[in-house]
Design a protein around this nucleic acid. Structure first.
Length: 425
RNA sequence: GGGGAGAUACCAAAGCGGUCAAAUGGGCUUGACUGUAAAUCAAGUGGCGUAUGCCUUCACAGGUUCGAAUCCUGUUCUCCCCA
């Protein structure tokens, strides 16, 4: 099986230019690239999809370039947006750039014969004047062609600024720049990048008369219709400060049976036969979630490391498998401290506990977890509030220090899956 | 430039003087069932020490009225048709 078939069979190819398979088949080492715009301080789990494709290509001997959009990030890509986006300030872009760079460095090999290289398109755009851009880039693109792109067409009614309209030309120029300076012959990106990628192919064809290739990875969706990687409207970030490794692990562990095979193929680099075995075992006893556990462990380890994974597993086991009230009281102080670090938590003075006249008041003192007293009361009425594993049935109960585990901790549970640890001191 | 329609809670969408904290659907939260699933069913979904109670909400600012999401005036924004 060649590399193109491999990435195809893993479900990593959504759209590909016609000469891609041949280019990869006939060359031992081709340089390729994907761009990442610094629109957020962290990558999210969805960004991992093109990165997985890049890893596979690199392992097969091809050379990856990562393009950071220090310049394009200042303009804003209209792809996949139905509204003009607000301009990001240079400071924000700079800060984001730094965050992305450190994250990206974890995911590809930067040493060896096919070492990955990071470039920033600010390098060439910053020193280029407007006239030069018009003459060197603008002259080779036809407006009719640019307007006919889906992304642009869709936006013509609702409005698209000249800046965002120009984005595809900038990206096309990037591709050309990497092609002429580093012999980069393939561009890949998310499925919304197809228009920009083909613009680059067209551009290079016109300017150099050469043929280059491109492909897109699919946008992963879930069986329930939601975008993969979104939870309650928020992205699952790779930055542990924004999405804790525990939450990251839990998100993947909760993957629906219908989706898990697809995700295994995308995110786990084991041979496909091995993944087939995992699925086979999973189907024998789906309730054990063998496949989900494998996926969650593999990806959490990949992104956050072995230690963070073990913490996430330990917390998950403690809470969901051995989560009886007795077991909770058997936990040692160090184990509780560990849970505190792993789960969403808050610290408050003991006086808060002493002065709270009801459970409702105490909970409402933590607005990050409980936005209002009404909400707490509602939750209690529905039987959904649990403190230290014991359901709270009366919201007017007065809490006291005897509730604390190891004189410090309170494990609060909202529904079945949402845990918070409160620490009093 | 001319004519018309509209702006209601997270979204869609009823309501057109009191019975409106505002129908209905989706979403979301919780419960039951379960595999920390799916499907299904049930409850909840502005705030408040829980109340035939009070407070803040129906684009914004004023006004009429005992009483306004509903009527009037102005402002802002959106959509449609004609030129």
């Amino acid at each position: 099986m060649n590399i193109f078939q491999e990435i195809q069979r893993r479900g990593l190819v959504n759209n590909a230019s016609s000469g891609l398979a041949e280019l990869l088949a006939k060359n031992d080492s081709v340089a390729f690239y994907a761009g990442f715009d610094p629109t957020a301080p962290s990558l999210h789990i969805g960004n991992l999809v093109p990165l997985m494709a890049m890893r596979l290509l690199q392992k097969a001997g091809h050379k990856p370039y990562i393009l950071l959009g220090g310049a394009t990030g200042l303009v804003g890509d209209p792809s996949g947006k139905n509204q003009e986006r607000p301009l990001l300030s240079e400071e924000v872009v700079q800060a984001n750039l730094l965050g992305l760079r450190t994250q990206l460095e974890k995911f590809l090999a930067f040493e060896g014969t096919h070492a990955a290289v990071i470039v920033n398109n600010a390098e060439w755009f910053a020193r280029m004047g407007y006239l030069e851009f018009l003459r060197e880039a603008g002259k080779y693109m036809n407006v009719a062609y640019m307007i006919s792109k889906d992304i642009v067409k869709r936006r013509l009614e609702s409005g698209i600024s000249y800046a965002e309209f120009s984005y595809q030309l900038m990206q096309a120029y990037d591709f050309w720049y990497l092609y002429t300076h580093y012999n980069v012959q393939i561009q890949l990106g998310g499925s919304d990048q197809w228009g920009n990628i083909t613009a680059g192919i067209e551009f290079i064809h016109k300017k150099c008369g050469k043929e280059v290739q491109g492909f897109t990875v699919p946008l992963l969706t879930r069986a329930d219709g939601a975008k993969f990687g979104k939870s309650e409207g928020d992205n699952i970030w790779l930055d542990p400060a924004q999405t804790s490794p525990y939450r990251f692990y839990q998100y993947l562990l909760n993957t629906a049976d219908e989706d898990v095979e697809k995700l295994l193929r995308v995110f786990c680099e084991e041979p496909l036969e091995k993944l087939e075995e995992i699925m086979h075992e999973h189907r024998q006893a789906p309730h054990l979630r063998h496949a989900q556990r494998y996926l969650a462990a593999s990806l959490t380890r990949f992104v956050h490391g072995e230690e963070a994974l073990q913490r996430a597993i330990l917390a998950s086991e403690t809470l969901f498998r051995k989560g009886s009230e007795e077991n909770l009281h058997r936990l040692r102080a160090t184990e509780l401290a560990e849970l505190f670090e792993t789960l969403p938590h808050a610290t408050a003075p003991l006086s808060l506990l002493d002065e709270a006249s009801t459970v409702v008041d105490l909970m409402a003192a933590f607005p990050a977890f409980f936005p209002s007293k009404s909400e707490v009361r509602r939750l209690i009425q529905a039987g959904g509030l649990t403190v230290n594993r014991r359901p709270v049935t009366d919201g007017n109960l007065r809490p006291d220090r005897s509730w604390l585990l190891h004189n410090r901790f309170l494990l609060v549970q909202k529904g079945k899956k949402q845990y918070f640890v409160l620490r009093f001191e």
